[in-house]
Amino acid sequence: MAEPAKTPTAFEPRIVAFLCHWCTYTGADLAGTTRQQYPPNVRVVHLMCSGAIDVVYVLKALMDGADGVLIGGCHPGDCHYQSGNFKARRRVAILKNILAQLGLSADRVWLRWISASEGRLFAETVREVTEAVRAMGPSEFKTQWDA
C-alpha cells in the first residue's frame, strides 16, 4: 500500500515499547508471523517481565526522543513471575500521577496487557498508540532542548 507523500516537516511519532518476554513480546512476534500490518513507528525493548521496568528508562526514552512509550505485559493473573505486572501497574500509576501533577504529558505513557496469543491486539494497540501520539504532536522534551 503506497503511503501518502510526506512533506519534510511531517511529524512521524516515535514510540518506544517495553515488552515482556512471555506475553506481549511473543504477541508482537505473532503479529509478525501472521502478517498483521501495523505502523513501523514502534521500537521494541525486550524485557523478561513488565515488572522489570524501572520508570527511569521510561522517562529517559521520553526525554531522549520518544514521543510515546508503550509498556506491554501479561494480563493480570497471567504473569509468569506471579506479580510482576501488578507491580508494573503501581509504578506506571505513580509515574502518570507525577507527570500529570507537574503538568507534563502523562498521556504519552501507555500500559497494555497483551498475551502471547493476541497478535491482532498487539497490532491494533500499536495503531492506537501511534495515531493518538500523532495527534498529540512531538514530545515537549523534544521541542525544548534544555530540558
Binding site: 498521556d107 501507555w110 497494555r112 496487557w113
Partner: peptide, 19 residues
C-alpha cells in the same frame, strides 16, 4: 511500602491499563 505490594483490582484508571 507501596511498591512492594499490590491489589488485584486497583489503579486501572490511574495506570491507564485496560483489561
Amino acid at each position: 511500602i507501596p511498591l512492594t505490594v499490590f491489589r488485584e483490582d486497583e489503579l486501572q484508571e490511574e495506570s491507564g491499563a485496560r483489561d
